[in-house]
Every structure is written in structure tokens, then in C-alpha cells.
Design a protein around this nucleic acid. Structure first.
Length: 569
RNA sequence: UGUCUCAUGGUGUAACGGUAACACAGCAGAUUUUGGUUCUGUCGUUCGGGGUUCGAAUCCCUGUGAGACAACCA
């Protein structure tokens, strides 16, 4: 489907965002030999979400736009938290979005030796020292944002040779986790906390998913990221705003490392927040682990795999990212913009089919018993080349229960006694009444059809207020339909600081309908196939579906002006 | 009583010293064999106070508000 249409939306004229402006400025000044080389650096400790999609689009997008390259680099400096499980899913998600790193797949662990050697250089230059204090002591000495830190008693305790020896012994495993660390020697009085002799190496005796038990010391993020950029020849290291305070440290290490004019530069943009959902890895993990959702790819999750299973197309996600822009303002995007993006895409591409999700029987009392007519239904009125498919029409049909009202409010244009409606693609019928059970529930609806109003006949052009979708009771196929709604009831979860986000979950975020009737054309639909259920919304076949057991996920409903009208009364 | 960053309609984003605009959302109407789509119209915006300038959303000062930073996480 539209997975392959990657570059179609890039040709529209747009003003430059601040990242593009700054890259173009670097280019104009001839920095780094006119190269643009970016990287996407996920930590393999969770699944990618739509916020990462934003990062992926800018990282790969800038490279593409300026004739450069973008590396994929797994930032695997903490073996205690990371796992190969995540590596594969991350690569799958990037590819699904339509981006490719070609042969440039790297791991920060590829540079462990270089980083280790660089750390020893710093020791030799007296710019790093081994500190045997506890985490609490170090933290206490670090001061607070408003109060300077104090110099560590280990600052000058050992000679260069002793520090070198100690660091090597740390790596040999002679010390237990937490007994000592290697710190860069910068400035304990710096107003920037990150410059107060940051820890650059700590002992972790947990096997690494790629290097096994080769190392007992692992570099911290700040000591790995910028240097890895440098080793790979990255020119623009684009990341989110919370790393802004780290930039002086990023630059400090690069200064110690560089031996030419080349230098990578960190640029920070605003992270994506969406209304009615959470975006932090920690909270997403919690939802999964506590069984509050059905896994990382639960269609209610803002994960890439969740959106995929929900029925979002890569093109729609990219178009959404394209609309929200990159700035330094920390705002929150209305999910309705995401929904608009997928409707916009699917309206052009999804085949229209008939499905009744809350069926009630409609009997056409004057239609011949046992007769079946095949009605031709256009696959997509938005696309003349999309063709059509046939749908059987019989005396007994199913229609939506909510499309009938015995005593309707004003502006109800659907089935009600005495009123004519059109059965889409078939005949105009007039409702004559309904049958009820002993509790007064409608069990059947009766109508008469006008044989002269079959679609295509001149009389079918008669003005009728309402058009209903239907399926033949004799031919309908059973299906399960899963209706999804927003996961949370609060618009901005960040505003609800005093509440646990789990208490703000929407109890109706998933409704499973088991007794749905779909047209026979759908009988052999396959997982991930996308459709528009006429008048209802966009749906895709869930991966749990099997032959003979159809399951559909609602991606998004159609816009519904009737429900708004109804709400007014 | 620190450092850094940010502040434009309800939500985002543009305008780069010269008429404040675009998208989404909302509202109203037209078209429609989907109460969908499409089309038209409409509502509504520069955080406050000073200054520079013929002219300020934009530059300067100041105030206010918001976010980030005190993990041996990334």
C-alpha cells in the first residue's frame, strides 16, 4: 500500500525551520568540508514511539535533504538495562517509516576500546581521576543548581601512574560495582551541574549483549555520545531539548579529542507531546508490564508498532511529523492533527466496504423471497481507477441498530416509520414499522422497496435525505471489531502532576464487538489490509485474525457531524 | 535565591525591521447515493512595561510565566 510512497510530500514549498537554517548556515561557512552527516542514536531499552518518529524524520530527513548520510547507532552503554530484543524492533520500525541506514549500522560498543584509550589520555593529561567515594558522597559534593560543589578528596590524591593503574584494575574486575568511578576533572564550581567533575566511567559487572564480559567498566552517556559522533564523522548531532544543558560537556570532550578543523555540533529541538497520551519510555513500559495495555503494540499505544497495528500508514505518520514542525517551544500537539493525517491518507487509498457493527435485521416485505441481486459497489469514489466489487442484495439485510429510531428527533435522516431512505448502491426503501420483543427492544425493522429506484435507474436520482449501509443477512460474514479510543481522559498528562497517570486512564479505550456482520468481499482479507467501513471509519485487519475468524481494528472513525448534532439536543 | 532555553488565535507552526498568515480544531453554508470527501464563508493571535527606529512579533533593557539541569540512566 502506501508504505512505499516515501518522498511524495517533500516537494511543497516551506520556510526553513531553525535546524535547516543552521545547517544551511554551516554549509555557507564551509564547515566540515560542506558535509552533512547525521545519526539516529536510540538506546536499545524499549520500543520506539511517535516521538522517536519525529527524531528519525529530522535525522534521516536532513541527511537526505542536504545530500548527506545518516547513521543508525545503538547507544548501548548500559548492559544492565539494554537488550537485543529491542534492537530488531527498532530497525523494523525505522524501515517501516521508510528510512534506511544502508551499511551504516553502528553500536556505541564498537568504540569501547577507543573510549577507554581516550579516558586514559585524559588521566595522563590530569583531566580525569579515579574517585573511591560512594554515590551519595559524590552526589552531596556536587552541590545543588544554586550552590557550588566541593572538590573531591580524590581530586589530587593519586599520581597519573596510580590513576592509570587503578582505572585498569577497575576494568579487570578487581573492584566491585559502586566502589569507584572515573571522573573528568573540570570545574566543581561551574553553574552547570554537568560540568562539576562528571562521572565518565562506572563499573558494571553485567554481561553486555554484544561485548559479553570483555569489559567491567562502561562509559556514561556524556562520555560516549559526542565521541562516537566524532569517530563517525557526524557533523550535526540533532537531539531533544533536555540535552541542551549537556552541550558544554559535549563540546568539552570534543575539544580534548579533535585534531583538525572537523567538529560535530549538537542541535536541540522540542520533544513531541500529544494530548491524551503519555510519551515517556518509563510510563509506556509501566503500562505494558502492569498489563494496563496488551503489549507494546497495543493499538492504543503511541508506539510505532502500536500505530502500525492500529492501521496507521507510514505516509500518514510522516505527513503528521511534517505538519508539527521543529522548534524550541515545549508544547503539546492535539491528537486530532494525527487523526486528520491518517484520514487524509486513507480517504485516498482505502477500499470502501460495507460492515454492520451493531446489527439489527431489516426485512423488505415486498422483495421476492429467495432472490439475490448483485449490486456493484465502487471501491473508492475518490479514485476513478479503483474499480468496483459486487455485493449481494436479498430480502433480509442487516443495518446498524442506531440507524433506526421509532420516535426520532429533528434532523434524523435515517430509518423511521413513514420515511424513505436509500440503501447505498441498491434501492430506495420506505420504513413501515418494526417488531419488538416482550421488553420493547426492536428485533426487526420492516420496509418496502421501490423496484424503480435501483441504483443507476432514472428514478434512483430521487432526493432522499439519508443513505444507509447494509449487508445481506444470508451472505454476511461474522467478524470481531475492536473500537479504540484515547487511552487517557486527561488532555495534558503533564499538567496532572499530583495524580498518578494510571488513575487517568480511559475505561472505555477499548470496546470489543463480537457480533458484527461484514460483506462477503471481506471473507479473505489478510492482516494489515486497510478498509473504509462505509459511514463508520477506517479499519484494518488485526494480526490475530485467522481464516474464518476476522478481527478488525478501528484506526479512526470518520468525522461525524451527526453525533455533534445529536449532542446539541 | 544559579545556569541554560522558550513565550504569536483553542492547539501547533510561519512572517528573518515594512499589510500578522497557514494547518488542525470550532462555527455557518453549498455539493454529495458515505451526516464521509470536496468547496465557500466565519470566529479568533504577537505575555506585561520601557526603549531604539519613519516603522518592532522581530533589535535592546526590564519584569512575568513556563520548561530543562542536582542518576554510578540515556
Amino acid at each position: 500500500m502506501s508504505e512505499l510512497t516515501v518522498k511524495e510530500e517533500s516537494n511543497e514549498k516551506k520556510s526553513l525551520n531553525f535546524i535547516e537554517a543552521s545547517i544551511e548556515n554551516d554549509l555557507k561557512e564551509g564547515k566540515n568540508g560542506g558535509r552533512v552527516h547525521t545519526r539516529f542514536p536510540p538506546e536499545p531499552n524499549g520500543y520506539l514511539h511517535i516521538g522517536h518518529a519525529k527524531a528519525i524524520c529530522i535525522d534521516f530527513g536532513m541527511a537526505e535533504q542536504y545530500g548527506g548520510k545518516c547513521n543508525l547507532r545503538f547507544d548501548d552503554t548500559n548492559p544492565a538495562k539494554e537488550d537485543v530484543e529491542y534492537v530488531d524492533s527498532i530497525m523494523e520500525d525505522i524501515h517501516w517509516l521508510g528510512f534506511d541506514w544502508e551499511d551504516r549500522l553502528y553500536y556505541t560498543s564498537d568504540y569501547f576500546q577507543q573510549l577507554y584509550d581516550f579516558a586514559k589520555d585524559l588521566i595522563r593529561k590530569r583531566l580525569a581521576y579515579v574517585d573511591f567515594q560512594t554515590a551519595e558522597e559524590i552526589s552531596k559534593q556536587k552541590g545543588t543548581p544554586t550552590q557550588a560543589g566541593e572538590v573531591s578528596p580524590y581530586y589530587e590524591k593519586y599520581s597519573v601512574e596510580e590513576n592509570l593503574d587503578l582505572f585498569e584494575r577497575m576494568n579487570k574486575g578487581e573492584f566491585e560495582e559502586g566502589t569507584c568511578v572515573l571522573r573528568a576533572r573540570i570545574d566543581m564550581t561551574s553553574p552547570n551541574m554537568h560540568m562539576r567533575d562528571p562521572i565518565i566511567y562506572r563499573i558494571i559487572k553485567h554481561p553486555h549483549h554484544r561485548t559479553g564480559d570483555k569489559w567491567n567498566v562502561y562509559p556514561m552517556y556524556d562520555f560516549a555520545h559526542g565521541q562516537s559522533d566524532y569517530f563517525e564523522g557526524i557533523t550535526h548531532s540533532i537531539c531533544t531539548l533536555e540535552f541542551e544543558v549537556h552541550r558544554p560537556l559535549y563540546d568539552w570532550f570534543i575539544d580534548q579529542l579533535k585534531d583538525s578543523d572537523y567538529r560535530p555540533r549538537q542541535i536541540e529541538f522540542n520533544r513531541l507531546n500529544l494530548t491524551y497520551t503519555v510519551m515517556s519510555k518509563r510510563k509506556l513500559l509501566q503500562l505494558v508490564q502492569e498489563g494496563l495495555v496488551n503489549g507494546w503494540d497495543d493499538p492504543r499505544m503511541p508506539t510505532i508498532c502500536g500505530l502500525r497495528r492500529r492501521g496507521y500508514t507510514p505516509a500518514s505518520v510522516r505527513s503528521f511529523i511534517n505538519k508539527i514542525g521543529y522548534t524550541k517551544f515545549d508544547g503539546i500537539i492535539d491528537v486530532s492533527l494525527l487523526e486528520h493525517s491518517i484520514r487524509e491518507d486513507l480517504n485516498k487509498t482505502a477500499t470502501r466496504v460495507s460492515a454492520v457493527i451493531d446489527p439489527v435485521k431489516l426485512v423488505i416485505t415486498n422483495y421476492p423471497e429467495g432472490q439475490t441481486e448483485m449490486m456493484s459497489m465502487p471501491n473508492n469514489p475518490e479514485d476513478e481507477n479503483s474499480g468496483s466489487h459486487d455485493m449481494p442484495f436479498t430480502k433480509e439485510l442487516y443495518i446498524e441498530r442506531e440507524d433506526f429510531m421509532e420516535n426520532p428527533p429533528k434532523k434524523f435522516f435515517r430509518m423511521t416509520p413513514g420515511q424513505e431512505v436509500r440503501l447505498k448502491g441498491a434501492y430506495i426503501v420506505k420504513c413501515t414499522g418494526c417488531g419488538k420483543d416482550e421488553n420493547g427492544n426492536v428485533t426487526e425493522i420492516y420496509c418496502e422497496y421501490d423496484p424503480m429506484t435501483k441504483s443507476g435507474m432514472p428514478e434512483s436520482n430521487r432526493k432522499v435525505k439519508g443513505t444507509l449501509h447494509w449487508v445481506s443477512a444470508d451472505h454476511a460474514v461474522d467478524a470481531e471489531v475492536r473500537l479504540y479510543d484515547r487511552l487517557f481522559i486527561a488532555e495534558d498528562l503533564n499538567e496532572e502532576k499530583d495524580k498518578d497517570f494510571r488513575d487517568l486512564m480511559n475505561p472505555d479505550s477499548l470496546k470489543v464487538l463480537k457480533n458484527c456482520k461484514v460483506e462477503p468481499f471481506l471473507a479473505d482479507a489478510k492482516p494489515m489490509d486497510r478498509f473504509q467501513f462505509t459511514r463508520l471509519g477506517y479499519f484494518c485487519v488485526d494480526k490475530d485474525a485467522k481464516d474464518g475468524a476476522l478481527i478488525f481494528n478501528r484506526t479512526v472513525s470518520l468525522k461525524d457531524s451527526w453525533s455533534k448534532e445529536k449532542a446539541k439536543n
